[in-house]
Design a protein around this nucleic acid. Structure first.
Lengths: 354, 354
DNA sequence: CGGCCGCATGTAATCGATTGCATTTATCCG
DNA sequence: CGGATAAATGCAATCGATTACATGCGGCCG
């Protein structure tokens, strides 16, 4: 029969087990406050009735939702997909649901209100730092001191929970990879300046160039916005340079791919004519041609670690006075878009015009 | 003061507006059952107190969560990201949250239980048909007749709500695009056979080949699993063929990209030596080299339409006796990975070795 | 043996919004 | 003008789980 069978409630379990609902509830939430024997009877009753607890009722009573919000700027960007993957895995293994919130616009507090004031969610995993973080923090503090963990971006502001990558340091290692191949004339394609982490990458580039005693030419620093076609346009800009670098560091993979595709169009070869290194190691990087050398961000770890940290805070398992601050190291992944400078190794030869 | 200020409740609004909570509730849910004047007073009171309703309480009382579940096989696959995007947009515009559920394994009912029996969610958007759909339907029927909408896959089973693309027909058009370019020897790289839609694509290929009187050679039908490296391996298989097709239809873009990258490695040029057409038009397709000709699935529409349909059912705005069945047409997107067969048009010339 | 302590469990109030039913008020018609 | 009808609103029970407080029970110590 397809009659709508009502879900069993805690009452049904209590009746079945011959105890009060209070005891059943305790057996579920604080098992050590219930005697061994009763606990077993209750477990049997739960199995017999097929009971699962009603989240809405628990949330209402506990004033806690069992859900976190993951706010991302653009779910359409594949960069987030593997992060989403790991966030979901971590959250669901701890019994939490994940509400994904995409492309928030305007005043973030009106949107926070929807989720948090109405107790739909207990914490925020924030990937989008174009938002006004100060007002968000104020809002969250005023509404039950709900925690925020910022992921994947740098934050000057103190006291914020942060999980990110070592963007500056990793970009330095990208430069040094090129230096190790004999390159001295190295350019850079920047990311959008409204985020901090692309600026960190640029800073890392500048510092590494200085550290290695290399020429830092401003006309070799080409602005981009992380999208593929800005890399493509950067390629056009590169082609018009009177004197060109022999290697480029791109602030992310998409731009590196766009860049390469533009210079290939113009008949240049990568890596023979120009070495290119990207950043992130997105899924695409290994399949473009040539396969891209890049600094890998540990995206799965970013998701898992930040989620774990957020839930620890939500559950009060962490001293709120000590904000989380975790910086993951990126890994250099060498593929085929970088190669030794032709004729290097013995003497830094003058650049050849083909 | 950073003291935790309690969220205003419907009581506060009622007091402020000088009415009962019942009236406030009605003003929110069924505004036409409340007089103009009172409604305005209540709206003012809501603004004054900063009230937002407590979802947990509403869910508990209404036995409805205000949330849907989106079940996908692999959030790490960028194919889903733009769908996710549109699902989120549609759901949130109607006041619903979206819980994303990734990579369900094993018996789906134990996982359904978590979400649905505990009234965490009101409906299911199902993208993953490797699951046992019959038992899922039974479960959902037994628990308050919760609706399922299957997205992006074919379903033989009748009575199921379905939103998908015209995979078979579109693959036929892909073949005819190649035929129009003069190709007669056409191969195919298949998708994983445990889903229905890749089989539909294969079937569409076979039918179109027959319809156009073209040779259908089984050794030109190369198995793949939709992942990029299976396309790469298909490229290797292609290279070992004694006699090769002049064009390939790949069951999705990833495999087309993998395929092209493999044959390019072997020194073949695309499209001069072999034309390749993909399926889906993922974000990557336009940026690889050569930019990929492909059949575009309207992914944003898939997400938006299926979500709208699901919510219509949830809200009882649709006759449950008439299941949804929407098939979206794919669009041919011509880029540079397909080209006229050299020497075609006048006479089907024998293939040239470079 | 009496009193005290602590463990296990029960009682009942509570979280905040919804809604069936009752009540009041306004409207209309003969 | 009386009474019937409809519209607006209020009253209070309810959804299901949690938890402060109360109770009962056994054991231990002086």
């Amino acid at each position: 029969m397809t009659v709508t069978r009502k879900s069993p409630t805690i009452q049904d379990v209590a009746r079945e087990a011959g105890v009060s609902t209070a005891t059943v509830s305790r057996a579920l939430s604080t098992p050590d406050r219930v005697s061994q024997a009763t606990r077993e009877r209750i477990e049997a009753a739960i199995a017999a009735t097929g009971y699962t607890l009603n989240q809405a009722a628990r949330s209402l009573r506990r004033q806690r939702a069992g859900t976190i919000v993951m706010a991302i700027p653009n779910a359409g960007n594949p960069y987030y997909s593997s992060i989403l993957d790991s966030v979901l895995a971590e959250a669901s293994s701890r019994g939490y649901g994940v509400l994904v919130s995409n492309r928030v616009q305007g005043d973030p507090t009106v949107w926070l209100r929807d989720y948090f004031q109405s107790s739909r969610a207990d914490g925020l995993l924030l990937f989008d730092l174009t938002l006004d973080i100060a007002s968000m923090r104020r809002f969250m503090t005023e509404h039950g001191n709900l925690p925020i963990v910022v992921v994947g971006d740098e934050m000057v502001e103190p006291g914020i929970n942060l999980v990110t990558s070592d963007n500056r340091e990793a970009t330095g290692r990208a430069v040094e990879h090129l230096v190790g191949l004999g390159h001295r004339n190295i350019g850079f394609v920047t990311g959008p300046t409204m985020h901090d982490y692309p600026n960190e990458r640029l800073l890392g580039f500048r510092q590494a160039m200085g550290r290695n005693g290399l020429p830092l030419r401003e006309d070799w620093i080409i602005p981009g916005d992380h999208r593929m076609d800005s890399g493509y346009r950067a390629g056009s800009a590169f082609l018009t340079l009177a004197e060109r670098p022999t290697a480029m560091v791109c602030a992310n993979d998409e731009m590196a791919i766009g860049f390469i595709s533009r210079v290939q169009q113009a008949g240049l070869r990568c890596p023979q004519d120009v070495s290119v290194i990207g950043f992130d190691d997105t899924d695409m990087a290994q399949y473009v041609s040539p396969p891209l050398t890049t600094m890998r961000q540990k995206r799965a770890e970013l998701g898992a670690i930040s989620t774990a940290a957020l839930l620890d805070i939500v559950e009060g398992m962490r001293d709120p006075a000590k904000p989380v601050r975790i910086i993951l190291r990126c890994d250099l992944v060498v593929r085929s878009s970088t190669a030794p400078l032709p004729g290097a190794a013995e003497a830094p030869a003058p650049r050849l015009r083909r």
